[in-house]
């Protein structure tokens, strides 16, 4: 880790701590970093609400995101490939996607609850919507960016239509597919926490945990919860980037 990346965050944290200790920042609105760390400890050990521990909140949130994201990837990547490969399909299907895409996933919550009730299916559905569109669009864009000469070259080597998709379009679009997966997972993660604010049946979830902390005026635990969301999101993205580097070895580096 390079010093250049870390000195500014460290300075800001120290400044924040100093201002808190000097009494400039009111603790009931913005507790000090140290208080947040203690709040984190309490979330992990005592739980919020008491007895419902942080790692279970995290596990439930990850389960919801995982479900929705997997569904989005399993449907979105093949659909994106098909849209990229077939101009006719693009003309037919694109208008539907363009109309649905601008609807924020959270705006689907009422209808999702009506359809699926409160629980994993509706949460998964909301995440699915958040992740689906970036995955489809980036996959399609990736296919369209594949050099047409490569397609012609494999056709003169005896490729059938399926070969073209499997051996050229899919690997050629892979870097772009990864961009879509990373954006989709990021949006899914953000969507999830907001969705959990509106209520969960199980009593678990990071968003639910934070809202409970707000109800009983614990800003330290609110901020600790936010930090967990941020760090876990970062961790997931790093994992995907590692997978990208393994699966796309012909590009020297992962795209930003």
């Amino acid at each position: 880790m390079k010093l250049a990346r870390w000195w500014l965050p460290l300075v800001l944290l120290l400044l924040w701590q100093g201002l808190s200790m000097a009494g400039v920042l009111p603790a009931y609105k913005l507790p000090s970093p140290w208080a947040v760390i203690q709040g984190f400890g309490e979330l992990a050990v005592k739980g919020m609400p008491p007895g419902q521990l942080l790692h279970w909140h995290l596990a439930y949130s990850l389960l919801r995101v995982g479900t929705g994201f997997l569904a989005a990837a399993v449907i979105g990547v093949p659909l994106g490939l098909a849209l990229g490969a077939s101009p006719r399909l693009r003309t037919t299907v694109s208008p539907i996607i363009e109309v649905l895409r601008p609807v924020p996933p959270l705006a689907w919550i009422p209808i999702a609850i009506l359809w699926f009730g409160i629980g994993l299916p509706s949460a998964g559905f909301i995440i699915f919507l958040g992740a689906f569109f970036p995955i489809v669009l980036n996959t399609t864009a990736g296919v369209l960016e594949v050099n047409p000469v490569l397609v012609e070259a494999v056709r003169t080597l005896g490729a059938k239509r399926g070969d073209v998709v499997k051996k050229v379009l899919l690997p050629g679009a892979l870097p772009s597919i990864f961009v879509g997966l990373r954006i989709g997972l990021g949006i899914g993660w953000m969507t999830l926490v907001a969705a959990e604010f509106t209520g969960v049946r199980s009593g678990y979830g990071l968003g639910y945990m934070i809202m409970t902390a707000r109800d009983i005026q614990r800003p330290d635990e609110i901020i600790a919860g936010m930090a967990v969301i941020g760090l876990v999101g970062l961790g997931i993205d790093i994992l995907l980037r590692l997978a990208q580097r393994r699966l796309v070895p012909w590009r020297g580096e992962a795209s930003p």
């Binding site: 050099n147 012609e152 070259a153 494999v154 003169t156 080597l157 490729a159 070969d163 892979l174 070895p249």
Partner: peptide, 28 residues
């Protein structure tokens, strides 16, 4: 595959090694 073609831009698949490119037609 009866009529092969060699392109000015080589048109090798960048995600396949040289070996992978040469065996592509046999694979298909």
């Amino acid at each position: 595959a009866k009529v092969g073609m060699v392109f000015q831009q080589y048109a090798l698949l960048p995600w396949r090694t040289c070996l992978g490119n040469v065996e592509l037609g046999l694979e298909m």
